[in-house]
Amino acid sequence: MTENKTQATQAEPADYLETIADTARRTDCQALNELMRRATGEPPVMWGSAIVGFGLHRYPLAGGKTGEICAVGFSSRAADIALYGLTGFDEAEPLLETLGKHKRGKGCVYLKRLADVDAGVLEQLVTQAFNSKKV
């Protein structure tokens, strides 16, 4: 069986957040860390070297095997903040329509700045996405 490339690590999420060079981006990611912690009730865990994740999502693979990844999470990328796990459940679309300025990719939501979105809607989206994937 091929092992999942992105796995939970023992690295400290706070250390990763401190490495974000842009002050505004670092502040946004620290606030997002607190928002996701509050919305999920879970502590942050590093997945790989650059994803701060919350909770655990198991998903089916071929041959009856399962994979694991964080239920929801985020990462500071070169152009945007990538949010993971916030799409693909019934209540996502209405919330995404009222979220504010964002882009979507395959399974991801991308933000330039946290101030571009409604924090209350984002927290509701995180909570519902997390609850839809509880193990």
Rank of each mutant, 00 (worst) to 15 (best):
G41D: 11
R77N: 08
A50S: 15
Q10S: 15
E68H: 00
R104F: 01
E123Y: 10
D118H: 07
A8P: 13
G48K: 07
K65C: 00
G85I: 02
A21Y: 11
A31W: 03
F74R: 11
T6F: 01
G105F: 06
A50Q: 10
E93Q: 12
G105A: 08
A14V: 11
L56R: 15
A24T: 15
F74E: 07
G53W: 02
T127D: 01
V117K: 05
V45T: 09
L32Q: 00
A115Q: 12
S76Y: 03
A78N: 11
L17V: 09
I20H: 12
T127Q: 08
P43N: 09
T98V: 15
R58S: 09
G120I: 02
K134T: 12
T9L: 01
D90S: 12
E42K: 11
V52R: 05
E3R: 09
G53F: 00
G120S: 10
V109C: 01
G63P: 02
L122E: 04
T2W: 13
K112D: 13
E97M: 06
I20K: 10
V126C: 03
D90L: 10
Q128G: 04
T40V: 07
G107I: 11
I51P: 02
L86N: 05
K112F: 09
A115G: 03
R104A: 07
L35N: 11
I51A: 01
E34R: 15
A92R: 05
Q7S: 10
Q128M: 15
I81L: 15
K5E: 08
G48E: 06
E34I: 07
L17A: 09
S49E: 11
G41F: 13
A14N: 13
G105M: 08
L122N: 05
K112G: 08
A115H: 12
K106P: 00
D80Q: 13
P13T: 09
L17D: 02
P60V: 09
K65W: 01
E97H: 02
A71Y: 02
L83I: 08
R38I: 03
L125G: 08
G107Y: 04
E68N: 03
A14F: 03
K5N: 07
E12V: 15
V126Q: 03
H57L: 04
G41P: 04
V109M: 01
I81S: 10
L96D: 04
R58P: 03
C108S: 14
F89S: 01
K134W: 00
E91A: 15
G48T: 08
K112P: 00
A78G: 11
G88T: 04
A82N: 07
R58T: 13
R37P: 05
P94H: 09
G67S: 13
Q10K: 12
G73N: 10
G64T: 09
E3D: 14
K134Q: 12
P43A: 15
S49L: 08
L17F: 04
E18R: 15
L35F: 13
L95D: 04
K101E: 05
L122H: 07
G120P: 09
R77T: 08
A50N: 14
A62I: 06
I69C: 10
R77A: 14
L56K: 13
K133M: 11
Q7I: 14
L32D: 09
E12T: 08
R37N: 06
A115V: 10
G64A: 12
